[in-house]
Each structure stands twice: as C-alpha cells, then as structure tokens.
Amino acid sequence: MRRRCLLCDGETEIQSWAAFFGVKPPLLCENCSKGLQKLTGPSCEICSRSMKETGICTDCAAWDKSIFHSNHSFYHYNDVMQDLIARFKYRGDYVLADLFAQDIRRAAREMKCDLVCPVPLSVSRLAERRFNQSEALIEPAGLQKTLLLARRESNKQSKKSRAERVTARQTFYPVGDASGKSVLVIDDIYTTGATMRLVSRALEQAGAVSVKSITIARSGS
C-alpha cells in the first residue's frame, strides 16, 4: 500500500499485511520523518523545555503568578521543524496539520480542559494568511473549538527580541465567556511563553480559571 509523503512527495509504503489489519501508510516517508525530533527525557514541568533533571526552569520561575498552568510540546524546533512550520504557516500548506492531529487529540484528551480555544490572528494577518494556523491544528484533531479571544493589530511578533517579547503589550481581548472554565490553547510554537501569558491574561478577563497549552514545537535552548 502506497501514498505520497506530505513533505517530499516521495512514496511511503507499509507491508501489505499491515494494510490488511487496517494500518494506514505513514504521512511522511522514512527520510523526512527522521528529521523530526520528539521531545523525550527530563523537561521543565511548566514549559516542556529540555533539562538535565525534571523541575521548573529559571524562565518559568521568573514569571509572575498567572492562571497559565503549563505547556506541552511534542517536538524540538530543529531545522527540519522550522522548514515544516514555515511551509505550514507562512506558505499556507494547511494539510501539514494532519501530521500532528493524532498527537494533539491524545494530549488534549489527557489534559481534560473544559474548552479548546485557538490563538486569534489580527484581521489583516488573517486576510493575508487565509487561515489561522492555530485553528488549522485544532480541526484535523477532531476537537471542538470555542472562539473566546480576538486580537488587535500589532507589529510582527517574530521580529522582536526576547526582551521586547517578554514585555510585549497586550493585543488579545476577550470576545466570549469562559466563566469558571479551564481552557486549552493550541498553537504551533512555544518560544518564551510571552504569548501564552498574554493569552492567559485575556482568558482570565473572559472568566477562565486555568489555562494549559499544546504546541507542536518547543523552540529556544
């Protein structure tokens, strides 16, 4: 049984007996999937950063008290992942979200939150990209999304330095009601955690009592 690799368009294959038992061929060929590196081993309990021993990293310890509980990431943000996310988010290859649907579904089930909320884009950015990458990750995972937030126009996040991002001004604001609920937020990358804290603050204004996040990749050392 064959299909095309989502990244290189080469053929992917499985044993015919496996197909008989309902196993589907992988979405990536062996070569492309080799480049993606799962996060394993000890990590920060709050942000998923790789560490020598499990615990709480210095960055997380430095954040002010917040309803933000923790982030779970699946992969290292290595070169292959960087290309993949660029192709997904900036080039707009929506279907690549399928690669993470299973991971997201499983992790979301374990987190047991009341609501799943995407990270909103500003109106102009959404028009430019044609879809919201966060919603694109939620839908193939078969989760029900609740739009609790919107976002004002701002400068591009990725061009700012870490210091600027950490002190970034709030651009999110509540548009829905999350009174007494725990909320799961899904996004592509977790870098400094600044975005998630801003999202959490806006969700708190919407009435949420706690926020967890799932991100595809954990960037930063």
């Binding site: 368009d9 290859d93 929506y94 279907v95 959404l126 044609r130 879809f131 919201n132």
Partner: peptide, 8 residues
C-alpha cells in the same frame, strides 16, 4: 497534488 481549507 492539491489540498483545501476553509479560506478567510
């Protein structure tokens, strides 16, 4: 080789 998505 096509895919599709809800387009804003």
């Amino acid at each position: 080789n096509f895919a599709s998505h809800p387009c804003t």
